[in-house]
């Protein structure tokens, strides 16, 4: 009972993952700033933003549905944090693991997007509605490559549990090299999920003010932002568990250090890509995902099937 509460509230639950995701946001913003030749924000910036937003007055637009408007940010954050319980892997025994948790994590990661959509739609501002529709359109584009990318890694490992996948690649490190296409596809699809720059179409501030979050302010906005940050950490952990080497055999402390380094490596990749590219249009994004990313994902699936038939059997 106590240990379950500890796991939910402190480690690896709410407290740890919030602090970690704020650190990840800082890394993202700092790297982005340095790549643009700027100094960038100080280390406490995401924390200060979060506290300031919590301290602002409450405001619900008259036209919005008060219940849905105020409850969706909580849903978004809760499901993102729940997803995190299954992904961190740095010891021989995972914290919580069962056969099929890859699928659960992927679906839990979809819930924040749905919450953004519903919250934006029910705030009844025109900009928020346009943002919501774009968010949904984008969801259909990146979700398939993301699923194919992650699951083809699982296919080679012949298990649906994240722990099993990590263990398989830990025991057979060479098989990782077959998964490079899958890693690239999942990373790009993850950027679509996180609304990072080439795919920040739903919140394009030069076109539709702030997209789904236009009417959100104060603590609701704080929760939405935190949910996005947690999503970034969960997504990065997922990619790290499936594609990157893990420090499983190094013991808990060194393994944890390896895990942290890997997460920051993926965050750095994301900020590099978002600095280099400019925003796409929604139709360009959809056709890019379906014309290039999905076929690449399927190619990865085929490669893994052949590898499995030839090398493992």
């Amino acid at each position: 009972m106590i240990s379950a509460l500890f796991a939910i509230l402190v480690f690896p639950g709410i407290l740890f993952v919030s602090a970690f995701s704020l650190a990840a946001e800082f890394a993202d913003r700092k790297i982005h700033a340095r790549l643009q030749n700027r100094v960038g924000p100080p280390w406490f910036q995401p924390l200060a933003d979060f506290i300031k937003l919590l301290g602002k007055a409450e405001l619900i637009p008259t036209n919005a549905r008060p219940l849905i408007f105020s409850i969706t940010p909580v849903f978004a954050l809760a499901s993102a944090i729940t997803a995190y319980l299954y992904v961190p892997l740095w010891t021989k025994d995972a914290l919580f693991s069962f056969n099929g948790d890859v699928i659960v994590v992927l679906y839990l990661l979809t819930i924040p997007t749905m919450a953004f959509f519903i919250g934006g739609w029910y705030s009844t501002s025109l900009y928020a509605k346009i943002g919501s529709v774009r968010l949904m359109t984008q969801l259909f584009a990146y979700e398939v490559p993301l699923f194919i990318g992650i699951l083809s890694g699982a296919l080679l490992a012949d298990t649906w549990s994240l722990y099993g996948i990590a263990l398989f690649y830990h025991n057979n490190p060479m098989f990782r090299f077959f998964n490079i296409i899958g890693f690239a596809v999942s990373l790009i699809a993850l950027m679509g999920k996180l609304e990072k720059v080439p795919f920040d179409i739903p919140e394009a501030e030069t076109e539709i003010v702030a997209g789904v979050c236009t009417e959100y302010s104060g603590k609701f906005l704080a929760l939405f932002r935190l949910a996005l940050d947690v999503e970034m950490v969960v997504g990065a952990s997922l990619l790290a568990a499936v594609y990157l080497p893990s420090g499983m055999s190094l013991g808990p402390i060194a393994g944890f250090a390896v895990y942290i380094v890997e997460i920051f490596f993926i965050v750095a990749l994301i900020s590099l890509l978002r600095t280099v590219f400019a925003r796409l249009r929604i139709d360009q994004m959809v056709s890019f995902c379906w014309k290039y990313m999905a076929p690449l994902g399927i190619a990865q699936l085929l490669i893994n099937l052949i590898v499995k038939a030839v090398l493992i059997k």
Partner: peptide
Amino acid sequence: LKGTPRHAD
């Protein structure tokens, strides 16, 4: 710089 007055201080 924020686009919407709801976010700005």
